[in-house]
């Protein structure tokens, strides 16, 4: 598998990364090396193996339905670049 510049550009856009032409070129090269490395896994025959979502085989730990967290808006907002009273504020986004 080989990634062209167009695909890399699209992936970068989806990840909200702005790459110039030179960076695109370089990133494509790097990603292709990573792909080549991962593609070695294709040599393993997995035709009789069920796909796994987790390797441990454990099940999900659960929590009781009890309210024991929250009520600290100042902590939640402490890293906000901009706020108005207890709201986060961002440049206007209307669809």
């Amino acid at each position: 598998m080989s990634l062209d510049k167009g695909t890399v550009k699209r992936v970068a856009q989806l990840a909200r990364l702005r790459l110039d032409d030179e960076q695109l070129e370089k990133t494509a090269e790097e990603l292709n090396k990573i792909f080549t490395w991962i593609e070695q896994l294709d040599e393993v025959d997995v035709s009789n193996i069920e796909p796994l979502a987790s390797v441990t085989g454990h099940s999900l730990p659960e929590r009781m339905d009890e309210v024991t967290d929250g009520n600290y808006p100042d902590r939640v907002l402490s890293n906000a670049p901009d706020r108005a009273s207890n709201f986060f504020t961002v440049p206007k986004v209307v669809e």
Partner: peptide, 8 residues
């Protein structure tokens, strides 16, 4: 709530 900002 504001002319140029959205509140979250």
């Amino acid at each position: 709530q504001h002319p140029t900002k959205s509140f979250i």
